[in-house]
Structure formats: C-alpha cells, structure tokens
C-alpha cells in the first residue's frame, strides 16, 4: 500500500481518538469531578447529576465509547482496504 493512503488512514484514526478521548475525559474528569458541584444542583430523578456521572454515568459512557470506536474503525479498515481477510 502507498504511504500516502496509510498516512490518511492513520490521521483519520487519530482524529477518532481525539474526539472519543475528549468525550471520555469530559464525562469522567469534567462532569464527575471538576464540575460535579455545579451539576449536583441539577437533579436527574433522585440523582444529583454530578454524583450520577461520578458513580454511574461515566461508566455507561465508557462502554458506549468502546463500541462506537469498534464500529468506526471497522468501517475505516474497509474503506482503506486494510481489514483482515
């Protein structure tokens, strides 16, 4: 495979990583820790929102992020014809 396409593939991968890891950081460190106090003013049913992110929400987001990554990468692999036969 030409290096040009390999670079494109890799850059696209890196872009996905940056986006997904920003969400990862925001939901855990952002909502769960740094902004937890202000979010706690908002209620989600019986949960103060900051508390919910720290003990429930961030974990759901983590699981989702991995499956989104898997979906994106499988599509990307096929697009650039580097998937496993």
């Amino acid at each position: 495979m030409k290096n040009k396409t390999l670079d494109q593939y890799w850059n696209c991968n890196l872009r996905y990583l940056v986006i997904l890891l920003s969400i990862w950081f925001m939901c855990s460190y952002g909502f769960g820790i740094l902004f937890a106090d202000s979010l706690n003013q908002i209620k989600l049913g019986g949960f103060p929102l900051g508390f919910w992110f720290s003990q429930q929400g961030s974990i759901y987001v983590f699981v989702l992020l991995i499956f989104i990554y898997v979906y994106l990468m499988n599509r990307l692999d096929q697009e650039f014809d580097v998937d496993e036969k």
């Binding site: 990583l17 997904l20 890891l21 990862w24 983590f62 990554y69």
Partner: peptide, 10 residues
Amino acid sequence: TGGYVLLALL
C-alpha cells in the same frame, strides 16, 4: 473502569 477505554483505543 476508565482504563479500558485507553486499552481499547490505544
């Protein structure tokens, strides 16, 4: 749990 996101992506 969050370490698994790093494991899977990186």
